[in-house]
Design a protein around this nucleic acid. Structure first.
Length: 260
DNA sequence: ATGGTAGTGTTACTA
């Protein structure tokens, strides 16, 4: 089984590329983030035409997450238990959707960006990650053998070599110690980064501006974190930077994990 | 030259 995660930065703008990528990549389950669509706007039929089922969560032009599967979609959950709300009045944002596909519990996650270190969005981001850690701990406590994949755009670069130049990130989000600690909280809850060992030095995201992609100035912020039993099934993993090329590309590359 | 690009939807906001 092959599972993938991809921040598509609008599924409506990317639908032809997304369908073409799925058809040539032999993917069983694709988790997407930043679909930028309400549920009724999501191009579900385009995926059904090529043999996939879709579970989507989107409230507006912001955020939006989905799971696209050809091995079944069961027990869909919108948001995880304890997920913080945001806004006035507070409401759950469309940043997490879970489903069981081919025996694996997949969570497609779009972690809040944080904006700046002083912005209230940063505290929201840290609370969000802490709540995810708690939820993950509870899932594994209930079933230590559970096969769970926490995948998506984490908006954290956990290591210095996950950005092209640490000096360029002085005082910025994504590399701060509180964000890195929050990310490692989920890891410490029992969820391992199963892609890094197979993709040393690789990035998953390159800003559209300032020729970041041709200059190879990217970041590793998209991750597949696997529960212990699932991590034991990982054969290999790759980051498809070819999909970042050309007109109409997302600013993120798809990340793929192959299971036994 | 305080910049650049992209998407949504409106002349701003988010990333």
């Amino acid at each position: 089984m092959r599972i993938a995660t991809w921040n598509v930065n609008s599924m409506r703008a990317r639908i032809d590329r997304a369908v073409a990528w799925l058809e040539r990549s032999d993917i069983d389950v694709l988790a997407v983030q930043e679909t930028k669509a309400k549920d009724e706007q999501f191009p579900t039929a385009r995926f059904e035409e090529i043999g996939y089922q879709v579970a989507h969560l989107g409230h507006s032009q912001w955020n939006g997450v989905a799971i696209i599967s050809r091995v079944g979609i069961e027990d869909v959950e919108l948001g995880f238990p304890g997920m913080p709300s945001w806004g006035d009045p507070p409401a759950a944002e469309a940043r997490a959707i879970g489903a069981t596909c081919g025996g694996v519990r997949i969570w497609s996650l779009y972690v809040p960006n944080g904006r700046t270190l002083e912005d209230p969005h940063l505290a929201y981001k840290l609370q969000w990650l802490d709540a995810l850690r708690t939820a993950g701990q509870d899932w594994l406590a209930a079933d230590p053998q559970a096969q769970i994949a926490l995948v998506g755009d984490w908006n954290v670069a956990p290591q210095d070599d996950d950005v092209w130049d640490m000096a360029a990130f002085e005082g910025s989000t994504h590399v701060s110690q509180p964000e890195r600690d929050a990310f490692h909280g989920v890891v410490d809850a029992g969820f391992a980064d199963v892609v890094r060992p197979h993709t040393p030095g690789a990035f998953t995201y390159w800003d559209y501006t300032q020729l970041r992609f041709p200059k190879k100035q990217g970041m590793r912020i998209d991750f597949v974190l696997a529960s212990p039993v699932l991590a034991g099934r990982v054969k290999t993993a790759m980051i498809d930077r070819e999909e970042r090329k050309g007109k109409g590309a997302s600013d993120h590359a798809p990340v793929i994990v192959e299971l036994t």
